[in-house]
Amino acid sequence: DETGKFLVLALYDYQEKSPREVTMKKGDILTLLNSTNKDWWKVEVNGRQGFVPAAYVKFL
């Protein structure tokens, strides 16, 4: 149950560059965990948590 969690859509592919980031593919649906930083949002994708560039995702 994803109640209270926001979902975001990956607009572009992103390859993680550090262990704190996660890789996503364009079209992936991600669970948004934290968006307090304007540049990097914490998400969960494929069972992994990490950061992606905020400009690469949008709210569903």
Rank of each mutant, 00 (worst) to 15 (best):
residue 55 A to W: 07
residue 8 V to F: 06
residue 37 N to K: 07
residue 44 E to D: 09
residue 11 L to I: 12
residue 24 M to N: 00
residue 8 V to Y: 08
residue 49 Q to C: 08
residue 21 E to R: 03
residue 47 G to N: 10
residue 32 L to H: 02
residue 60 L to Q: 07
residue 50 G to M: 04
residue 59 F to N: 09
residue 2 E to N: 15
residue 30 L to R: 00
residue 39 D to P: 03
residue 24 M to F: 10
residue 24 M to R: 00
residue 7 L to A: 06
residue 36 T to A: 11
residue 35 S to A: 15
residue 7 L to S: 09
residue 5 K to W: 11
residue 40 W to C: 05
residue 51 F to I: 07
residue 28 D to G: 03
residue 54 A to D: 01
residue 43 V to A: 01
residue 26 K to H: 06
residue 52 V to A: 04
residue 31 T to Q: 11
residue 13 D to T: 05
residue 58 K to I: 15
residue 12 Y to Q: 12
residue 2 E to T: 15
residue 31 T to F: 12
residue 55 A to N: 14
residue 42 K to W: 15
residue 42 K to M: 12
residue 37 N to E: 11
residue 43 V to Q: 00
residue 25 K to I: 08
residue 45 V to W: 08
residue 53 P to I: 02
residue 49 Q to G: 07
residue 7 L to D: 05
residue 34 N to M: 07
residue 4 G to V: 13
residue 22 V to A: 05
residue 59 F to A: 13
residue 29 I to Y: 07
residue 47 G to C: 05
residue 60 L to N: 05
residue 28 D to K: 03
residue 49 Q to D: 06
residue 35 S to T: 11
residue 14 Y to P: 01
residue 46 N to D: 10
residue 4 G to P: 12
residue 50 G to F: 04
residue 41 W to A: 05
residue 39 D to E: 11
residue 41 W to G: 00
residue 1 D to S: 15
residue 6 F to Q: 14
residue 41 W to R: 02
residue 16 E to T: 08
residue 37 N to R: 10
residue 37 N to L: 08
residue 9 L to N: 03
residue 39 D to G: 11
residue 41 W to F: 11
residue 48 R to Y: 06
residue 31 T to P: 11
residue 11 L to Q: 05
residue 9 L to Y: 13
residue 37 N to Y: 09
residue 44 E to C: 09
residue 4 G to H: 15
residue 21 E to T: 07
residue 30 L to D: 00
residue 57 V to A: 02
residue 37 N to P: 04
residue 44 E to Q: 11
residue 9 L to D: 01
residue 22 V to E: 00
residue 45 V to P: 00
residue 4 G to D: 13
residue 30 L to Q: 01
residue 10 A to K: 01
residue 21 E to Q: 12
residue 45 V to T: 12
residue 39 D to W: 14
residue 4 G to W: 10
residue 55 A to C: 09
residue 41 W to I: 09
residue 55 A to R: 13
residue 35 S to F: 10
residue 54 A to L: 02
residue 39 D to M: 09
residue 25 K to S: 10
residue 36 T to R: 10
residue 47 G to S: 06
residue 30 L to V: 08
residue 46 N to G: 14
residue 57 V to L: 15
residue 51 F to S: 03
residue 7 L to W: 10
residue 27 G to Y: 04
residue 44 E to R: 07
residue 44 E to T: 07
residue 28 D to F: 03
residue 3 T to Y: 13
residue 33 L to W: 05
residue 60 L to C: 09
residue 49 Q to F: 08
residue 25 K to F: 08
residue 54 A to G: 04
residue 20 R to V: 14
residue 24 M to E: 00
residue 33 L to H: 06
residue 47 G to W: 03
residue 53 P to K: 03
residue 21 E to H: 06
residue 9 L to Q: 13
residue 24 M to P: 00
residue 6 F to I: 11
residue 17 K to Y: 04
residue 18 S to P: 04
residue 30 L to G: 09
residue 39 D to Q: 11
residue 59 F to S: 09
residue 50 G to T: 02
residue 35 S to H: 11
residue 28 D to S: 06
residue 24 M to K: 00
residue 47 G to M: 05
residue 44 E to K: 07
residue 11 L to H: 04
residue 18 S to L: 10
residue 8 V to K: 01
